[in-house]
Write a protein that binds this DNA or RNA. Structure first.
Length: 683
DNA sequence: CCGCCTCGAGGTCA
DNA sequence: CTCGAGGCGG
């Protein structure tokens, strides 16, 4: 193949610059400079050159926005810094409380604090990483810690720069923001879908999120997606920027689109005014927003405030009041859960609320029905609470039809006809049928098979329904006694599916004690408690024989949970099932379950000063893993004070109270010693 | 709770 | 082509 001459190289470079610039002006500044035809012409010319001379193709070329090959799946991507959620404020009082809290913590006047305010777009949160100015990775939020790598899909968004603009680009930049679809883009997309008789999307948010999960980036490329940057997670070098607003301005220069209506305001009233103004223009916007985000503008103050659990203390999300719709209550059904809990579910005339069709809503319990004073046939107000769960808010006065019927809370289980019991002081009523009740049995089996329990692949709800209805399966142990020939008789189950299920069952036999305990579905014993129990007892028989007192002695297990566990193992039918399960070959490694060494159990430690080798939080976590409590202040009960560099009053106080003090070197030495003892125990 | 995507498999029809 | 399961995200 011939080498491209210099003129051609220059032309390719020029075309790339022009196309990048046109993208930026169109998608970021909203000031188109080229017509579509001009843009396409230049793009095609660049494609020709690159096709003829593949050496000229570079990853950040505008022609590379559409990755050719569909992916096989999305890789896991760990976020260098977790993507946190924000605390929510639902009214102005809660906003005021936020300002107050922040002001007090900073020991500042609330009226003088500067905030940076922006709309909260309703889309899908993502994170982008640029190294030496080039986009190298893009991922979804996921659980905040790890997300899905969707880089090739994100490359197709023309508002995401493939390389940063300008000179002086940072060596490392991680940008967070929202991928959204405008109302107009959404309408156009659905019009197109209707013409082609394809599926139409329910709302812009789902269309955006769905588009990102396409395996074929060429499909994503046809979707009108936009990216709006709202946060800098990492920036190196940090360029001496003092405020969040300055960071946003910097992002804009680097080629990102930032939130329109980004404003700096002062004081609590400034925030409230901003939220009001945004609320007023909300309906006229071409984008779905569900509130505003308020951030302390000064980065120094953000650092001072730090984080609490899963959210920064320096930011708050203001949520607009949830949209309400009215519809008719057709009927109420009573569902039976895994523990027998009876839940009344409202069957509603389907109604569109905030972009989705709602046909069901939980009424929680009898008290809630009484509180609402609702009857079947009533017109009711529905809203989607806390983002998602549909809720019956109230009955619409004066709209009750003649034939409205009272909602009668049943006295007998609608599934198995056992007595329904409601304990003194409890809101929930329960079917007393236990595992005699097919509904409870189904739920228990579903739980047993679920991913975090025995992880039986392919054993879903419908299949369990059939197995229970035919009485083929009464206890989890029966699952392992099913015969492939019988399974193959079931509808939608032929040889292949039956064999797959048999394989999955077989595969699930080897598990861990923690999973097994969790799978049993003991009330109030979730994943975390099951883990605790497994670690503490190391084997099943010790757990089965444990007294209530010895259970209560375990951290995080209180009297109620201890009693549930104890009762579970005293019941004859549970004992039989456990025996059966072991008989059908459920096994786990005993060795793995050695109890952890907790040399610091019962001790309270305090950290002060700056540690060189780790953050304060990390030190705290490591101490806690060894059983210590970590507190913020020194008292005579303090077991030991770790004094880092520039320790202050805590050190003085410890000396006064004659509390033992160690320095960082001593601390590290001790940590190593204790932690290595644990590693030995665990392997 | 709801919507979306993907996959494997079953069923139907030519 | 349709269904069930599984996974993700808000």
């Amino acid at each position: 193949m011939s080498q491209p001459d210099q003129t051609l190289r220059d032309e390719a470079a020029r075309l790339r610059a022009e196309l990048d610039d046109a993208n930026y002006r169109y998608y970021v500044l909203d000031e188109p400079t080229l017509t579509d035809a001009q843009y396409d012409g230049k793009l095609r010319r660049l494609q020709e050159i690159e096709a003829a001379h593949p050496v000229l193709v570079i990853p950040d070329s505008p022609t590379q926005r559409v990755g050719a090959r569909p992916a096989e799946g999305f890789p896991e991507v760990e976020h260098a810094l977790p993507m946190l959620s924000l605390d929510n404020a639902f009214n102005e009082a809660e906003l005021a409380a936020f300002t107050q809290r922040v002001a007090e913590r900073l020991e500042r006047d609330a009226d003088s604090l500067e905030f940076c305010c922006e709309p909260k777009f309703d889309g899908a949160a993502i994170s982008l990483v640029y190294e030496d100015g080039v986009l190298v990775s893009g991922a979804t939020r996921g659980d905040g810690r790890t997300g899905e790598g969707i880089t090739t899909n994100l490359r197709t968004l023309r508002s995401i720069p493939l390389k940063l603009r300008g000179d002086n680009v940072p060596t490392l930049l991680e940008v967070r923001g929202e991928v959204i679809m405008s109302h107009s883009g959404f309408e156009k997309l659905n019009d197109r879908a209707r013409e082609e008789d394809a599926k139409v999307f329910a709302n812009p948010r789902n269309a955006a999120a769905g588009s990102l999960r396409q395996l074929d980036p060429r499909v994503t490329a046809t979707r009108p997606l936009e990216f709006i940057a709202y946060q800098v997670a990492r920036l190196e070098p940090d360029q001496d920027l003092a405020t969040h607003s300055e960071l946003m301005a910097r992002l804009e220069h680097l080629g990102f689109r930032i939130s329109p209506w980004l404003e700096q305001v002062t004081g609590g009233q400034g925030i409230i005014d901003y939220c009001r103004r945004l609320g007023e223009r909300r309906d006229r916007l071409d984008y779905d927003i569900d509130g505003a985000v308020l951030k302390i503008d000064e980065l120094r103050l953000q650092r001072e405030l730090g984080f609490v659990a899963r959210a920064p203390r320096w930011a708050m999300a203001f949520k607009f009041p949830a949209q309400e719709q009215t519809t008719r209550l057709r009927d109420v059904e009573f569902q039976v859960g895994r523990t027998g809990a009876i839940t009344p579910v409202a069957r509603l005339e389907p109604v569109a609320v905030a972009g989705v069709t709602v046909a069901n809503a939980t009424l929680h319990n009898a008290d809630e029905i009484r509180r609402l004073g609702v009857m079947i046939g009533d017109c009711v107000a529905i809203r989607r609470a806390g983002d998602v769960i549909p809720q019956v808010v109230r009955v619409i006065e004066g709209a009750r039809p003649e034939d409205a019927r009272e909602i009668v809370f049943p006295e007998r289980c609608p599934v198995c006809d056992s007595q329904i019991e409601r304990l003194e002081g409890e809101a929930v009523a329960r079917c007393s049928g236990g595992l005699y009740c097919p509904a409870q049995r189904k739920e228990a089996l579903k739980h047993f098979a679920s991913r975090k329990a025995m992880d039986i692949d392919g054993l879903g709800e419908k299949l369990i329904d059939q197995l229970v209805e035919r009485d083929w399966v009464k206890t989890p142990a029966d699952l392992y006694r099913l015969r492939v020939e019988d399974l193959a008789e079931l509808p939608r189950m032929a040889q292949k599916s039956a064999a797959n299920l048999a394989f999955a069952l077989d595969h699930s036999r080897r598990t861990t004690l923690a999973r097994f305990i969790y799978a049993l579905g003991i009330r109030e014993v979730g994943e975390a408690t099951a883990n605790n129990l497994a670690r503490h007892f190391g084997n099943l028989s010790a757990l089965m024989e444990a007294s209530v007192e010895s259970l209560e002695a375990i951290s995080d297990i209180g009297p109620v949970v201890a009693r549930h566990i104890h009762t579970f193992f005293r019941q004859a039918h549970n004992q039989n099932t456990l025996e059966d399960l072991q008989q059908v070959g459920i096994t786990w490694d005993e060795v793995e379950m050695q109890p952890r060494v907790q040399p610091l159990a019962g001790q309270t430690w305090v950290l002060t000063g700056t540690l060189e080798s780790m953050t304060r939080d990390e030190g705290k976590a490591r101490l806690q893993a060894l059983g210590a409590k970590v507190s913020g202040s020194v008292s005579k009960k303090t077991a030991c004070l770790v004094a880092g560099e520039a320790a202050g009053s805590k050190l003085t106080k410890a000396q006064e109270l004659e509390v033992p003090v160690i320095d960082e070197a001593g601390f590290l030495e001790k940590l190593q010693e204790w932690e290595s003892a644990n590693e030995e125990a665990e392997t």
